[in-house]
Amino acid sequence: AFAATGFSALPALASAEDADKRIADFAGGKTPETGKLTLTAPEIAENGNTVPISVTVDSAMEGDDVVEEVMILADGNPNPDVATFHFSEASGAAAATTRMRLAKTQNVIAVARMKDGTTYVDKKEVKVTIGGCGG
């Protein structure tokens, strides 16, 4: 009677600790800063099988001000890894959009690493609901 979403047949899910470990590895042990990186995702997923997410980093993408990578994680999926975007000066802008699976309500996390090694983080909780019964 109610819509099911997300991965079907779930094994054990990843935890916030798994995601934290990925972030520590990516950031070389430093604590990522907040501010330059924006992760955009819906507050509530329309369909846990295909949730649009976007990242944008405030960067000139020239000279020293270049974003090299943005890693996407999800702390409640079977595995926290989602994707890693690799940018270059030819990207012109550090912005990308994709669609992802969410097994349940959880945080989506983005971490960016600049050419100089500085890292930035942003996260957003995306709710996966069974839907219906609204008003």
Binding site: T50, A96, M100
Partner: peptide, 27 residues
């Protein structure tokens, strides 16, 4: 790639949805 030089790339895990969609920029 554009004229042989990489513009953008992405490493993909199973958490990316069916019919993968990527939107990005190029100068």
């Amino acid at each position: 790639e554009f004229n042989g030089a990489t513009v953008f790339s992405c490493d993909i895990e199973p958490a990316i949805s069916a019919n993968p969609y990527f939107e990005f920029s190029a100068r």
